[in-house]
Design a protein around this nucleic acid. Structure first.
Lengths: 150, 150
DNA sequence: CCCCTTTTATTGCAAACGCAATAAAAATAT
DNA sequence: ATATTTTTATTGCGTTTGCAATAAAAGGGG
């Protein structure tokens, strides 16, 4: 009778809230860390791909990434063979910040699974990945004006 | 090597996004469903308890609930033995809306766990509840100005 | 009983959010 | 080769968000 999505929602809000509070003194405004992390881990990635990975509105991502650029944490680069896509790269400053973000992220993940066995941890990750895969097509669909029947 | 919290974050954003799009035509603005559901399921609940359950800022909850009241979906009632707490109750209109929200919620949960066995589903819920319990104290702490060491 | 702390709720303000509309390049179709 | 569709990115605009500060009632201790 429990509700998986409510648990997921509460957990997500907790960590987002904690992260934002912890990163603020380091000059990162709300949710910027989300985008910076993806750019650092996937240098050359384009915005649309980040949108797909983190599941956020294009416009939100666009402005957040702009702000990262203004803050000197990333740079946008015109791809040589493509004038539409803008490849995103971290700056040195961005990479330094990333190292710190990673520490926080590792800590948070460890805190999250405290008391779980290694096997349970694996199971949880595997099941979450499955849920995410289930959800992605519906998100795409509804975001693009489609409807779900229920 | 996978990251549990990133999966959780993406899943949460997906469903929040889907829900908001689906509920908008029914007159619910962003995230109002979250609060309405809790009030319908716990008539007489106070705002602070909702904050604890859903993990959102007090101010956000305050305004969202105000708006539910303005929309005639819930009402605030002064508790007879307590002049500080405001007990929250759904109106008839709120209850009707809730029936619809439930259908969507059930559908979403079913969609989320598609392809999982009944046992896997149980395991997932159990592990998520554990994670949530792990996270709650840290959220409380950081929200109240405390710091985590890492 | 009075003082101090905690709990509950609200508001100011600046920022982020997201739908909708727009634009421009790229990919696909005819 | 040109027209159409898809992909990528941005901006306008109204709304929501959340930190910080404030207020007022409740609870607790001496």
């Amino acid at each position: 009778m429990g509700n998986i999505l409510r648990e997921v929602g509460a957990i997500a809000r907790c960590f987002e809230s904690i992260s934002n509070i912890e990163f603020k003194p380091y000059g990162l405004s709300k949710n910027q860390y989300i985008y910076l992390v993806r750019i650092c881990e996937n240098p050359g990635i384009i915005q649309e791909e980040i949108v797909y990975m983190v599941k956020v509105d294009r416009s939100t991502a666009s402005r957040a990434i702009d702000k990262l650029e203004q803050g000197g944490l990333i740079r946008k680069e015109q791809e040589s063979d493509n004038r539409k896509n803008k490849a995103l790269y971290p700056t040195e400053k961005g990479k330094e910040m990333y190292a710190f973000l990673r520490k926080e992220d590792d800590y948070s993940n460890a805190a999250a699974v405290k008391g779980l066995s290694a096997e349970e941890e694996e199971t949880l990750l595997r099941l979450l990945q499955k849920v995410r895969a289930n959800v992605e097509p519906d998100w795409e669909k509804v975001k693009n004006g489609g409807t779900r029947e229920y």
